[in-house]
Simulated assay, not measured.
Amino acid sequence: MELRQLYYFVKVARKEHVTQAAEELHVAQSAVSRQIHQLEEELGVKLFLQKGRNLQLTPVGHLFLKRAEVILADLDRAVVEIHEFLDPEKGEIRLGFPHSLGVSLIPQVVAAFRKHHPNVKFRFRQGMYPSLIRDMVKGEIDLAFISPFPDEHEHVCGQVLLTEELYAILPPTHALAGESSIQLNQLKDETFVLFSEGYSLRPIVWEACQEAGFTPKIGFEGEETETIRGLVAAGMGVSLLPEMALHHTGILQPAKVRVEQPHVTRNIGIIHRSNEKLSLVAKVFHGFLLHYFNEKKHEE
């Protein structure tokens, strides 16, 4: 069994399509198909079944995928550890984070860190809460910014870095757009623009509305803060967004109003695997984050 076969197998399993896997691997489709066939012959089992134009893992294929992912993750970690041993300042950090932090927070933090560690490389992975937890447990990322912060989890641990306030955002022509603050129940009859199911900000807004005594009427759903902000600015409804998602300029901008009751916030934390030591370079970055956000708190 060759290592290349494992790489090809995992890529095909994730894409569920040989052609797409070959494109990402930058090899011929025939080469991928040949390696998968040889792997199945060596194992004596079928790893995939044809389902239309796509491939579907067999039960034994699912079992083999779990083991193959662990093997490849361990190999990646071994390569990183060797590079760090030769020069910790030239290591790589695999960092996960939700989409809502990718606009400003992540670029600011990474830029500040690289002022002191210019040769450290980053490999980023964006995702929703469940996928970030899953990628962390599987060993595919070293650290992850996450919100909400998990109070208890069997496989991950970490620290809360900051608590961020959520503001009501309204169309510029809305009757409450000029107010300095509002009660959330003043929006009970409005149409809301919310994140789609699976995004961590959605339940925060939903629960805040429930606390205010009403169930939000959802008119539109989106997957990016820019989409939510743009729809509200265009008069499609109202919403709640964290402060860092509102530091933008452009033609379409919603009105930003503080919510007094209930006070709506979200916790943002950094997590890592609880049963594994951080690599040297990830440990340095983790320490930097704790210091960075502690200093930010004192500046406020």
Results as ranks from 00 to 15, higher is better:
E140M: 14
H99Y: 09
C157L: 05
E165S: 08
I133P: 12
E69H: 02
N119P: 03
S147R: 08
K51A: 10
P88N: 09
M136S: 12
L49W: 02
I133W: 13
L65S: 03
G139L: 09
D76A: 09
L57V: 04
T58L: 09
L161Y: 05
H83V: 10
P130Q: 14
V160R: 15
E41W: 02
V160W: 07
L161M: 13
R94P: 04
H83Q: 15
L75E: 11
A111K: 13
G139P: 06
P118Y: 04
A68L: 10
I106Y: 02
R53G: 09
H116Y: 04
G52Y: 03
F64H: 06
V110K: 07
V70Y: 01
L132N: 06
N119M: 12
F113C: 07
E165D: 08
N54Q: 12
R77V: 00
I133L: 15
L47C: 05
L55D: 01
V110L: 13
V45E: 13
Q50N: 05
N119Y: 12
A144E: 02
R94D: 03
V80C: 03
R123G: 00
K51Q: 07
V110R: 05
G102M: 00
F149W: 11
L86M: 11
E154C: 01
L161F: 06
T58A: 09
G91P: 06
E41R: 14
H62V: 03
E69K: 12
L105F: 05
F145L: 12
E81K: 14
L162F: 04
V120A: 10
F113G: 04
F145Y: 12
Q56H: 05
I93V: 13
K90G: 02
V120R: 11
Q159T: 08
R125P: 00
H99V: 11
E140A: 07
T58F: 07
F122W: 03
G52I: 13
A112K: 14
I146F: 13
G158F: 06
F145K: 08
C157G: 00
N119I: 01
C157T: 11
Q159R: 15
D76W: 02
V137K: 15
G158W: 04
L166D: 03
I71L: 15
L161A: 06
P59A: 05
D151W: 09
K90Q: 14
L161I: 10
E89Q: 14
P130I: 05
K66P: 00
Q50M: 09
R94F: 05
K90R: 15
K46Q: 13
V137I: 15
H155P: 00
S100R: 00
R77E: 07
P88S: 07
K138N: 10
P98Q: 10
L72V: 06
R77F: 00
